[in-house]
Amino acid sequence: MENPETGQETETFWIEEAMYKILEKTDYSDDVYMQVIEAPQVAATAQAGQFVILRIHEEGERIPLTIADFDREKGTITIVVQAVGKSTRHLQTLGKGDSLANFIGPLGLPSEVEKVGTVVCAGGGVGVAPVYPIARELKKAGNKVIGIVAARTKNLLLWEDKMSELCDELIVTTDDGSHGRKALVTEPLKELCQDGSVNLVYAIGPAIMMKFCCKTTEEFGVRTIVSLNSIMIDGTGMCGACRVDVGGETKFVCVDGPEFDGHQVDFDLLMSRQRQYLEQEKISNDLFLECRGDKKCLT
């Protein structure tokens, strides 16, 4: 089959009908949205801390996303996404009734949840979503859970209500003070550590946020778990694109993680590797924005 525009052969190898239905979609802001996807085989074994990989269409890339919630009975997985590049912007245009080409998971190791005492669950930006099911499990295991929900500004705050229902205590911060306390996530975290009653910290969000959370807790020797979001392709250990340095050893986020002891993670390397395709991501994104709304252009 030849593409009339490019004159190139288009891929015809084993194209199956897109079968993963989007059942629900909610926009939280211009860039952040939530989708509930029907994937019973993934929901059947999904656990807190794991991730999925999805592909929108035949020419699409494989995007890893941490599971924000799952419902075994309904057979659904919830994802919360921040539109930053072409694929996540494209996904944002899809809603109820649309379908995804592929939805693979659950991948990675689940969170190791046990009763340790008091746990701080800090989520930065969309990082609040993956923190939520972990906090729920920690609570179920009998821990006292203190939540920190942080964002740059008010309209980027997520799931304050869900977290407040779940947590014994909830702290809300924004960098600009537009809602909750005007502070960086590290400030309340430091205060809690100073109190001396914190046994474990979960910090999930942008790499820079996790890096500074770990710096904060390291001083107090409070064990801190982070969930890394490196670049991936297959998500099953085959490609090694997601490698990170943990305690001087190379680990694969997809099979050894995604959760690691944050005090051992080389965040600068992680951030450098995350920037690997910035140039190409821009080309893709610009092309996408140029033909926004033109379906033919999109696929």
């Binding site: 593409n3 490019t6 020419e59 392709i233």
Partner: peptide, 12 residues
Amino acid sequence: MKAYRFPEYDTP
């Protein structure tokens, strides 16, 4: 992923 045909295919 057919990356050699980027940006027609998304994977760089």
